[in-house]
Amino acid sequence: MKEIIFAGFGGQGVLTGGLILSFMAAEKDLETTWMPAYGATMRGGKANCVVKMGEVGGERIGNPLMGHADALIAMNEPSLDYLGKTKKGAVVIVNSHGVDENYEYPSDKKVYKVDSVELAEKVSNEQGQNLVMLGAMMKVTELYPKDEAIDLMCKFFASKGKEKYNEKNIAAFLAGYDAV
């Protein structure tokens, strides 16, 4: 079972970012859960979701809550509060635009810094910061091969009637993928 936390401020696309991961798993016939931060935290302040995915077909997912994540995508500094919910050796993708460069990370995490704002602007997709982070995470964790991940991401947006943005979204994904 894989567990990934996608965290940031409301509006940074963290819930959608997590949903794309769940969609990818479901398309591969794997069990998956997507649990949003629930309650007042959804309005403007901290937002997060935790996604769990089976690794083989039929693997049942018990507790859907955050606990021992394999990866944390942190779009801002408060998201680093969830470092305690990650495993030893977990991958942490940090948005360097939103986190103090002198932040001291625990030594047992593999930290990758990605400026999602600058990279998203560079490909003229300011709203695609979550996809920049998703691309970086995909490369580091090797969750799915690049082309398969891109196909599934495009399928996700198509399922929401948003396939016309696929080209811009691929550019954002690749900007992150190539930055780590």
């Binding site: 769940s22 479901a26 069990e31 859960t33 997507w34 649990m35 949003p36 629930y38 859907p64 809550l65």
Partner: peptide, 10 residues
């Protein structure tokens, strides 16, 4: 439960 209402599964 609230969690079961708000979460997403296949």
């Amino acid at each position: 439960e609230a969690m079961l209402g708000q979460m997403i599964e296949g």
